[in-house]
Computed example of a mutant assay.
Amino acid sequence: MLNIVLFGPPGAGKGTQSQFLVERFGLVHLSTGDIFRRNIKEGTQLGQLAQKYMNEGKLVPDEVTINMLKAELEKISEPKGFIFDGFPRTEAQAQALENLLEAMNTAISAMIALEVPEDELKKRLADRAKTSGRADDADPAVIQKRIDVYNAETLPVKHYYEKIGKYRGINGVGTIEEVTKRLVEVINTLQ
């Protein structure tokens, strides 16, 4: 089974590239943000618990996130593999994901990071604000804060995957097609 953590800062192109990889390799795209929103909207027990933490201004505990992810994984019969988008965000989450997949007799094949310089990220996010109407992408201060949070809190997950020999970084600059080609080349080495 092919299981990929698609990694990169805001504006790196993870969402765009995920769509191509799902189609090309028949993978299931799992976005923890989407899973949270759906569980909260549907009022599931885990969604209510997550909403409680969020209402208190607290981070949703890893255990709740992992349980939501586990419930999603269990819904899918005979998958070819998964693309994890937006998760893991910490080393503890990476270890919890490894444990969850191990219990399912599979593992992460690789973390593939879209490496994009900060000035390019800012340009992409500003351009996305014009075309998608995402207000959070229009304010340079908000963009910088999102990049800073990524660098401080999420980037360390890269080191976890480097330590276990599963990190693959690719140049995320170029046309969508060029970046897709680089991703496919890396994925083909994993199969």
Rank of each mutant, 00 (worst) to 15 (best):
residue 1 M to T: 07
residue 1 M to I: 08
residue 8 G to C: 04
residue 8 G to M: 07
residue 12 A to R: 00
residue 17 Q to R: 05
residue 17 Q to L: 03
residue 21 L to V: 03
residue 22 V to D: 06
residue 23 E to W: 09
residue 28 V to Q: 14
residue 29 H to T: 02
residue 31 S to P: 04
residue 37 R to L: 07
residue 38 R to H: 06
residue 40 I to Y: 09
residue 40 I to V: 15
residue 42 E to D: 14
residue 42 E to K: 05
residue 42 E to A: 12
residue 43 G to Y: 06
residue 46 L to N: 04
residue 47 G to I: 04
residue 47 G to P: 03
residue 49 L to H: 07
residue 50 A to M: 02
residue 50 A to T: 01
residue 51 Q to S: 13
residue 51 Q to T: 08
residue 52 K to G: 12
residue 52 K to L: 13
residue 53 Y to H: 09
residue 58 K to G: 03
residue 63 E to D: 13
residue 64 V to F: 01
residue 65 T to I: 07
residue 66 I to Q: 00
residue 69 L to V: 14
residue 70 K to C: 00
residue 71 A to R: 03
residue 71 A to K: 08
residue 76 I to W: 04
residue 77 S to P: 10
residue 82 F to L: 07
residue 86 G to I: 00
residue 87 F to E: 00
residue 89 R to A: 01
residue 93 Q to K: 06
residue 95 Q to Y: 03
residue 96 A to F: 00
residue 96 A to C: 03
residue 97 L to R: 02
residue 100 L to Y: 01
residue 102 E to M: 11
residue 102 E to S: 13
residue 104 M to T: 02
residue 105 N to Y: 10
residue 105 N to M: 04
residue 106 T to P: 12
residue 108 I to S: 01
residue 113 A to E: 15
residue 114 L to C: 04
residue 118 E to P: 03
residue 120 E to G: 09
residue 124 R to L: 09
residue 131 T to F: 06
residue 132 S to M: 08
residue 133 G to S: 06
residue 136 D to K: 07
residue 142 V to R: 10
residue 144 Q to M: 13
residue 145 K to S: 15
residue 146 R to L: 14
residue 146 R to F: 11
residue 148 D to T: 15
residue 148 D to W: 07
residue 149 V to R: 12
residue 149 V to C: 12
residue 149 V to K: 13
residue 150 Y to C: 05
residue 151 N to D: 12
residue 154 T to Y: 03
residue 156 P to R: 13
residue 158 K to F: 09
residue 160 Y to N: 06
residue 161 Y to F: 13
residue 161 Y to R: 03
residue 162 E to M: 14
residue 163 K to W: 06
residue 164 I to C: 07
residue 164 I to S: 05
residue 164 I to R: 06
residue 165 G to S: 15
residue 166 K to F: 00
residue 167 Y to S: 11
residue 170 I to E: 04
residue 170 I to S: 06
residue 173 V to K: 06
residue 175 T to C: 10
residue 175 T to I: 09
residue 176 I to L: 05
residue 178 E to N: 07
residue 185 E to I: 10
residue 188 N to S: 13
residue 189 T to Y: 06
